[in-house]
Write a protein that binds this DNA or RNA. Structure first.
Lengths: 236, 236
DNA sequence: CGCAAACTTGATGTTGCTCAAGCTAGGTGG
DNA sequence: CCACCTAGCTTGAGCAACATCAAGTTTGCG
């Protein structure tokens, strides 16, 4: 709905404010805009699949994507949920190493790789900016490894809720939009859908959160943070 | 032993062949060498700890390091084992997000951050080179997430053996050095030491590997690869 | 209103963890 | 040189957390 409401003009303005260009000169931003094109995909649609040629770099303008990897028997791990401002496809040189699918309707800004790479070499500070972005992602990836390898189910779910909350940081907001399904959450946390559901129910019963479909309200952030940090508070 | 045998001259030569400078001009390499200093640490020693000021970037010249993150109750996840050629500390701007400890005796090439960052801006192609390195790490991190979140114990252990084998790629070599303890392996795979030990024993009984302390020999690489890829070969 | 997809809840099962011995190898001192 | 000691490793028995299987329930949509 809201995606259709965005007029073409509004969206062109958005590009100048995208994450990639933050800190770059007006001129550099111009160069980037010159090689960009807009793309819109429907909920559930695949942007690209693991194994595809990686011919573009994208930035999310609007909506939410899931990135995932599969094992041959279908086991899935969602490596990330991407929302407005996130860059994607940068790490995939040659062949895509994950699949990217739309969760909601998604608007993307697309940069063809050859032109994008030329800019990396030519625009001063651009490579540096991209380096900062990938470094941040790497740090987040290490946090995810700790979560996947060493946290219990309730610690994982608590961490997930707080991550989503912080990302939608109209600060002090304690109602979190959850556009993805329980299945997506499970595959993001390395759990099953049933365990996610049960754990959310438990958190609700314990008064840490309130649940409405597609929305989670944080009722006791302190307790939730303690749980997420793994301070093995007896009882969880 | 071997580390003491390396003369100062030998080591200076090594620096010119380090991973960071690959593909850079002789001049750029010179700039890097100008701000570098060598450092040697003993097995078990800590290079820096999670929370420390991140004042340097390092490259491993010799030996093996473990990087890890801790939860407050002591649960540990090893985010990576670093050997010669690996860069470290690049992603940590401000504060270190993990601890780095020597497994064997380790020789490092150290670059102070301010000088290093100046080079990023001044040496053409350097930021681009670092971007490639972090992108590679990011791809590896996503593989680790899939492993940690969705693979079984035997799949994890098989993946680990193959990873170590490929890294020591004198190609066709099927005897893998394993300088780290079972505990390190467990904390790398998100398992317990007992499960790692049992799983290795099982792989030995099944004829996929042979075990000598601190060394693993690959006997049936095909089977091991199938197992690592998660092609749920019944019986594992 | 009815249908399908998503979600919840319960009963049972299995993987990997915990607790507890024993074993092995390498280094040290008598 | 050998016996001892310790850190690391292996193995076993029992257990808990999470997965699996199986109904039901809710929700959103045509």
């Amino acid at each position: 709905m809201y995606a259709q409401a965005a007029s073409s003009v509004t969206v062109r303005t958005d590009i100048a404010e995208l994450g990639v260009t933050r800190g770059l000169s007006r001129q550099a931003t111009g160069h980037l805009m010159a090689i960009s094109s807009l793309q819109r995909i429907a909920p559930g649609a695949t942007l690209f699949a693991e194994g595809d040629d990686a011919d573009s770099v994208y930035e999310v303008v609007h909506g939410m994507l899931r990135l995932y990897k599969l094992l041959s028997d279908g086991r899935r791990l969602i490596t990330g949920f991407l929302s407005a401002g996130h860059l994607l496809g940068l790490a995939s040189e040659g062949v895509c190493v994950f699949t990217a699918e739309a969760i909601t309707e998604v608007t993307l800004c697309r940069y063809k790789r050859p032109a994008f790479e030329r800019l990396i070499d030519e625009v001063p500070g651009f490579a540096r900016r991209l380096l900062t972005i990938t470094s941040d992602e790497l740090r987040a990836a290490q946090d995810r490894m700790l979560l996947l390898g060493r946290k219990s189910a309730s610690e994982k779910v608590a961490s997930f809720i707080l991550l989503m909350a912080d990302r939608q940081s109209r600060s002090g907001v304690e109602v979190v939009d959850v556009p993805m399904t329980r299945n997506d959450i499970a595959d993001y946390l390395g759990l099953t859908i049933e365990t996610v559901s049960r754990t959310l129910s438990k958190l609700r019963q314990d008064g840490l959160i309130a649940l409405t479909p597609a929305r989670i309200e944080i009722c006791d952030r302190d307790e939730l943070e303690e749980l997420a940090a793994g301070e093995s508070d007896a009882g969880f």
